[in-house]
């Protein structure tokens, strides 16, 4: 190519006008979105999941606001007005000590929902660290760590939880401890599987070549990239923690009176179910709807965060 500059004359007739249709060929019409924005678009399309999310937001708001604005307290007894039915003064009636059921359910919701959320978070942290290390280090360490998980897994969680709560005496701390000890194993397995597949990929090697430390690769690259499935299993952990807590309340080893969670409320009402069936219905409804909503959210998130699944 010994073409000299003066030999090539650029004249306007060498060019032709771009066709209108081709003008925008390179333009990306679809607005570029991050992973989570994209997931949110998919999540919104799932009506059930959206309804579940709205319900949970509504429930949380009620649990926070109603006890504050209500003239009643969760332990304020009024023996002259016990076991009252629904009325304007007490929207859900009163229990055998004349306490307002609506306020008690909302206060119970504070406890049940926070037990669910905190237990899921604890399980998440333990699971990420344990599963991350097991999956990233691999080899013998992984073998031993996973055999331990298998072992813990083969015993039903309820047995641990009951044992721990019985031994430590029922309290918020022992219930949380029991539930989190029994629920981190699934999370650890999930994280491990994710880390195992991701650590073979190029971006992990690239980070290594650039001199990133092992813990940086693990926590800043591998864990962040497996966030989708992890978030889905966290949303599934919340209802199971709420369930376990309610189960304990039902067995009579929940929080002690006058504090009450949904499980203990349902259990208290069970004893006078024949005479006042409505008192059972409210806490049962609260638990069922919340668990249903959380399950819908979990399913929706599963589809939204993992587009390959559908």
């Amino acid at each position: 190519m010994d073409l000299k500059k003066d030999e090539l004359k650029l004249t306007p007739d060498l060019f032709e006008k771009l066709d209108e249709n081709e003008k925008n060929a390179e333009k990306i019409a679809y607005e570029s979105k991050t992973y989570f924005q994209d997931a949110w678009v998919r999540f919104k399309q799932n009506k059930l999941a959206l309804a579940g999310l709205c319900f949970i937001i509504f429930m949380v708001a009620c649990c926070i606001i109603i006890p504050i604005i209500s003239p009643y307290t969760y332990d304020g007894q009024d023996m002259t007005n016990s076991n009252a039915g629904m009325s304007m003064a007490h929207l859900m009636g009163t229990d055998k000590f004349g306490r307002d059921i609506l306020v008690r359910i909302m206060c119970g919701g504070r406890i049940s929902l926070s037990v669910g959320a905190i237990a899921a978070l604890i399980a998440l942290v333990i699971g990420i660290i344990y599963g991350g290390i097991s999956g990233y280090v691999g080899g013998k360490v992984d073998m031993v760590m996973m055999r331990f998980v298998d072992m813990m897994y083969s015993i039903p969680d309820m047995l641990y939880i009951i044992m721990i709560v019985v031994v430590l005496e029922p309290s918020m701390f022992s219930i949380l401890l029991g539930i989190s000890i029994s629920s981190w194993m699934g999370m650890a397995r999930q994280v491990r599987a994710q880390v195992m597949t991701l650590k073979e990929q190029e971006f992990s090697l690239a980070a290594f070549v650039l001199g990133a430390s092992k813990s940086r690769i693990l926590f800043k690259h591998l864990i962040i990239n497996s966030m989708g499935p992890i978030i889905v299993s966290v949303t599934m952990l919340v209802p199971s923690a709420i369930f376990n807590e309610a189960f304990l309340g039902f067995l009579g080893i929940g929080l002690s009176a006058p504090q009450a969670s949904w499980g203990t409320l349902a259990n208290d009402a069970r004893q006078i179910m024949m005479a006042y069936p409505m008192q059972v219905v409210w806490p049962v409804l609260a638990i069922c709807l919340t668990m249903l909503a959380l399950n819908f959210i979990g399913d929706g998130l599963g589809d939204a965060l993992d587009p390959k699944k559908k």
Binding site: A246, F247, V281, L292, F296
Partner: peptide, 23 residues
């Protein structure tokens, strides 16, 4: 199936008693 997964067995038991037993 979704309802069955979401509602704990002891609550189902109580609802059953309420509907088919007591009422």
């Amino acid at each position: 199936a979704t309802i069955g997964v979401s509602i704990p067995s002891f609550l189902i038991a109580m609802l059953l008693i309420l509907v088919f037993g007591v009422t």
